[in-house]
């Protein structure tokens, strides 16, 4: 009965279209973030190049991934640092 009344008065919370829309939104967040393994590999290598200018990192243990949670996507990188580099004076002052 309540279902029926809710429908009659257009209460939207239980409406299946809202469920559909929300599921669609989430699935598209994931789909649109869909990055190919090659692209991730390229990204990883570029990251290594840049970061190596500043730090001594453990390239083999470096991990980069896209993590999708409830309603957002994050680029997560785990980069073990072995040590800091001695940054050249002129570069350091410009940072």
């Amino acid at each position: 009965m309540f279902e029926f009344l809710a429908r009659v008065f257009g209460r939207e919370t239980t409406a299946s279209k809202n469920v559909a829309k929300e599921r669609l939104r989430l699935v598209l967040v994931h789909d649109r973030a869909g990055v190919s393994p090659q692209l991730l590999e390229t990204l990883k290598n570029e990251l290594i190049k840049v970061i190596s200018n500043y730090m001594d990192i453990d390239e083999k243990a470096l991990e980069v991934s896209l993590e999708t949670s409830e309603d957002q996507v994050a680029l997560v990188a785990s980069i073990p640092v072995r040590g800091m580099k001695r940054i050249p004076k002129e570069l350091a002052s410009s940072i």
């Binding site: 429908r7 279209k17 559909a20 829309k21 939104r25 598209l28």
Partner: peptide, 16 residues
């Protein structure tokens, strides 16, 4: 069905 909230409507789809 759209009127009863049981099917996505035009705006819903265009939005997305």
């Amino acid at each position: 069905m759209v009127r009863h909230g049981d099917m996505m409507g035009i705006e819903d789809i265009i939005d997305i």
